[in-house]
Design a protein around this nucleic acid. Structure first.
Lengths: 147, 147
DNA sequence: TTGCGTGCAAAGGTTTTGCATGGCA
DNA sequence: TGCCATGCAAAACCTTTGCACGCAA
């Protein structure tokens, strides 16, 4: 298949993504950055390239909330392990890499009982991380009332 | 606080939500339905009322994908702890509503072993559904090659 | 009467699409 | 030379906001 032609814009985008693999990137952020760097890329092209990268599994797409731009993040090829899921905290935005045998059972259960094959590369568990849970707990202890 | 005035539109919306608690409702769906029923409600009002319902905890809001409208679902007050996940097929786009005791174990595991509290109404499993898996299998059998 | 709720239209943002042009193979 | 990729602008969406009017309390 060959992943299409090699172009300057494609390189520029992938480059940025690999150099910012620890962050989540929005199209806006990326576009502005490329403008500042003197290597602007059209918005449509950014969307189209990111879409391809997502299909190739090199980039993961997250949606925290509708009405807000989607977030993208580079995924190193050596981490494309099948049973590798991610937890994303909705409070602080941190991303937890989860390697755990329980998740293998999950995939198998969903497949055998529900006929659905999960794509771990695209699937993200949203919720609240340990640290934020603790913070929330502390805050609510200050103004206790019934539910 | 008193939840504001009681209005016809508010009733209409909450009514629809409670009667469709097993479905994912988008603002568009809701709006069209109300139009057809001869009880149209302005889009802005729908957004404003749903927002209030979310604040009250009677409705949950979640996002399947950016660029697509948010989904809303009524949560019966006595069912607020019920585990409820979604499977979204990346091929045909169908959305599967999953209620399964195994998922309860999942939440408990993630919480006890990883300190992370999953938000089931926000989390979506991406993958391929039964029907599409069958189609793909049929297609690839025609031109077999290694992976 | 008071002030929240509603509807309309406009605005603000994100993402997609059409089409002519440009660049890779 | 064929196509695919790009860029621009327009379009398509989703959601929010401003404002005048209506209606609940």
């Amino acid at each position: 298949m060959g992943n299409g032609y090699k172009t300057k814009q494609k390189d520029t985008i992938l480059n940025y993504m690999t150099e910012h693999k620890d962050f989540h990137v929005t199209v806006n952020t990326l576009s502005d950055y490329l403008d500042e760097q003197g290597t602007p890329v059209g918005t449509a092209t950014i969307y189209r390239q990111l879409e391809k990268l997502v299909e190739q599994g090199l980039v993961r797409k997250y949606t925290v909330d509708s009405g807000t731009g989607a977030c993208f993040q580079y995924v190193p090829p050596d981490k494309k392990c099948h049973e590798h899921y991610h937890l994303k905290c909705e409070k602080c935005g941190c991303l937890i890499h989860l390697e755990c045998s329980f998740m293998k059972e999950l995939s198998e259960h969903i497949f055998s009982d529900h006929g659905f094959e999960i794509d771990p590369l695209r699937t993200v568990f949203y919720g609240v991380c340990r640290d934020c849970l603790r913070n929330i707990k502390n805050e609510t202890e200050e103004n206790i009332k019934d539910e």
